[in-house]
Structures are given as structure tokens and as C-alpha cells.
Computed example of a mutant assay.
Amino acid sequence: MSTIPENLKYANSHEWVLDNGDGTVTVGITDHAQELLGDVVYVELPEIGAEVVSTEQFSLVESVKAASDIYAPVNGEVIEVNEALNDTPELINDAPYEGAWIAKIKLSDAADLDNLLDAEGYSAIIE
């Protein structure tokens, strides 16, 4: 059974979003997504300064089973990436909601958050 923290928002494509309260969000992939992928061996981080568009690919996670595109859940600019994933991509398996965030994004429009699912809504789509 996947963990689904109540304080996050979720995209249908299995990304989680933490509203940092300052016009930025932190983005990663859900516990459910990492379970489906299996052992993660590589994460392609987005470029700092890259403009991301909601529902378009902005990162890639490779596991022993497959490579999976990671989609931007919001529109904005990448302002920080989690460099720790370069050396320890398995953090995504070990702590998908803690140390394994992929990027921080400065929102183009805070209303994008309204288009995301809450924990209950996300739970319903993965059951």
C-alpha cells in the first residue's frame, strides 16, 4: 500500500507537489510511482533555469525495469535541482517524499495548484 501524505498535491502522472508558500513548489515522484518502477538507478535532472510546461516531460527516472518520463505538474522555471540524486538515485525508493525531491520550480501562476489532486483524489486514481 502506497503512502500518500495529506499535505501534498498530486498529478495524475504520479508526481507530488509541495507548496513552499513563497511562490515556489518542490516536485518529486510518488511512493506509488517508485513502487511501479522498482530499483531506481539513474535520475536525469532538469536544467536550472529551464522553463517547464505542465504535463510536458521535464525529467527522467530509470530503474532496472524501465525508464519513465517525469512530467511537470505546474508551469514555471526550475530554480533548484536535487544534486544528491546524481550519486544516490535510490533515494527515490528509500524516501520518495523526504530526501528524493527532483526539482524546485518557481510558479508562473499559483492557480496551477488548483488543477492538482489532493491526497484523497490521488488515492482514488491509484486504487
Rank of each mutant, 00 (worst) to 15 (best):
M1W: 01
M1Q: 07
P5S: 07
E6T: 02
Y10P: 05
A11R: 04
N12E: 13
S13K: 14
V17H: 07
V17E: 00
D19I: 02
D19A: 02
D19C: 02
D19E: 02
D22Q: 06
G23C: 06
T24P: 07
T26N: 01
G28V: 13
Q34K: 10
D39V: 15
V40E: 01
Y42E: 14
E44M: 07
E44N: 13
G49C: 02
G49I: 00
G49R: 02
A50P: 01
S54T: 11
S54E: 05
E56M: 03
F58E: 12
S59D: 05
S63H: 11
A66E: 00
I70M: 04
I70K: 03
A72S: 14
V78M: 14
I79V: 15
E80L: 08
E83N: 06
A84L: 11
L85Q: 10
L85V: 13
N86Y: 02
T88C: 10
L91Y: 13
L91F: 09
A95Y: 11
P96W: 09
E98N: 08
G99R: 05
G99M: 03
A111S: 15
D112N: 14
L116E: 06
D118L: 06
E120M: 01
E120R: 12
E120S: 14
G121W: 04
G121K: 06
S123W: 01
A124F: 02
